[in-house]
Amino acid sequence: MNLIKQVAIILGFWFAGELLSYITKIPIPGSILGMLLIVLALEFKIIKPTRVKLVANFLLNNMAMFFIPAGVGIMCHFKILKQEWLPISVAIVISALLVLTVVGKLMERKND
């Protein structure tokens, strides 16, 4: 029963985020707003961390798996990927490595 309650709380924050995104029309998805809402709720002690801990940890530990159905969707774009594979892959690889370098180095500099 405890687990079901935890799932319900997490879904509740998702729902609240979706609602907020729908009402305010900000171009930020409901799940991201829900994530910010749960941080606020925890920070202002509206809910205790233990109320979602078990399910949150389960979700975090298995996040990679939830991505697979979306990842398989890449098969629908083989054509364009094949046609423009060179500029696409060069741009993606260099850009991803640059972002890693900029953020990583700026955050690593002062060691803590």
């Binding site: 799932v7 997490i10 879904l11 924050f13 998702w14 985020g17 409901g30 799940s31 991201i32 829900g34 994530m35 910010l36 809402l37 749960i38 941080v39 925890l42 920070e43 961390p49 979602v52 801990k53 399910v55 949150a56 940890n57 979700l59 975090l60 298995n62 996040m63 798996m65 939830f66 991505f67 697979i68 159905p69 979306a70 398989v72 969707g73 098969m75 629908c76």
Partner: peptide, 27 residues
């Protein structure tokens, strides 16, 4: 792919809740 996508909703559904769970991790 549409069939597969429909049939595996039970997996992909948890992607958004895991983003919510990131809020817990952040806190």
């Amino acid at each position: 792919y549409d069939d597969y996508k429909k049939h595996t909703m039970v997996i992909s559904f948890w992607l958004a809740p895991s983003v919510i769970a990131l809020g817990y991790a952040l806190y």
